[in-house]
């Protein structure tokens, strides 16, 4: 840089002297130099234009002044999901755990509010039977589960299939998609129960909750639990009978059976 500056200064000085006494510049060959300078100048133009085009100024991040300077809560969760989805770092792992814990907590609370017990709610989440939405359902299913449900197997292949198509169009990863789906399902369930009146009736603690509604929910829960147990048992039995080699084709059949059984 410094050398370039020195060359520049010398050239400019020679030029200035040459304007006063033209004889000084006689050592410069007139013909060849002008085409060389012209060539260099074209390169210079291209270089300058590219630098201009690539210039990405760092603009200041200024505060909101005219209106109330607040934003709704939730940016922390969005950031955690983004880090968890993109990075392979230790931090990404930590964030993923945080996101999963928080969603699980919310889902359990939702099921408890709908009248299930906490353990039944956890069981439903693990079994993936808590919702009809395949992506949301598979979110809480442990990856290394000993008893892979047929419904789940189906759901998971479904998710994978969708991913490849979706990823062509969207910039979202499977993790981002499925957190989005879980939250959307929870939101839907919330407005459903609110419409049913479950949100309002417990105002000031009077146990006014519609008895019939509670009853039906409870029976639903027990039916679900029984159902999942049954599918568990049959799945286990089926697993032990079949050999690994046949799982490829038989797996599909089984998943169909399971779906027929699992869905009342």
């Amino acid at each position: 840089m410094r050398r370039l500056l020195a060359v520049g200064v010398v050239v400019v000085a020679v030029g200035l002297v040459a304007t006063v006494a033209p004889g000084v510049a006689d050592f410069v060959p007139a013909d060849g130099l002008s085409s060389l300078v012209g060539f260099l100048a074209v390169l210079g133009v291209i270089g300058g234009v590219t630098r201009r085009a690539r210039a990405d100024p760092d603009t200041p991040d200024l505060p909101t002044l005219e209106t109330v300077a607040v934003e709704p809560p939730g940016s922390q969760f969005d950031e955690q999901v983004k880090t968890a989805a993109t990075g392979e770092t230790r931090r990404a792992g930590k964030d993923e755990t945080a996101v999963r814990t928080r969603l699980r907590e919310a889902a359990v609370q939702m099921l408890v509010r709908e009248g299930h017990s906490e353990s039944a709610a956890n069981e439903q989440l693990r079994a993936g039977t808590w919702t009809d939405d395949p992506e949301a359902a598979s979110f809480f299913v442990p990856k290394d589960s000993e008893t892979p449900q047929k419904l789940l197997a189906e759901a998971r292949t479904d998710v994978k299939g969708r991913r490849s198509v979706r990823s062509l169009f969207a910039e979202t990863t499977v993790f981002e998609r499925s957190t989005e789906r879980v939250v959307a399902v929870l939101d839907e369930r919330l407005s459903e129960t609110a419409a049913m009146g479950a949100g309002d009736v417990t105002d000031y603690g009077r146990p006014e909750r519609g008895v019939s509604a509670a009853e039906s929910e409870r029976t639903d829960a027990t039916v679900d639990a029984a159902e999942s147990e049954r599918t568990d048992a049959t799945a286990g039995a089926a697993e032990s009978e079949r050999t690994d080699a046949t799982t490829g084709t038989d797996g599909d059949e089984r998943s169909d059976d399971g779906a027929a059984e699992g869905r009342p």
Binding site: P72, G74, S75, Q76, F77, R102, A106, M110, T179, A184
Partner: peptide, 8 residues
């Protein structure tokens, strides 16, 4: 998504 989750 985060905002909806907070609301829920």
């Amino acid at each position: 998504t985060g905002q909806t989750l907070e609301a829920v």
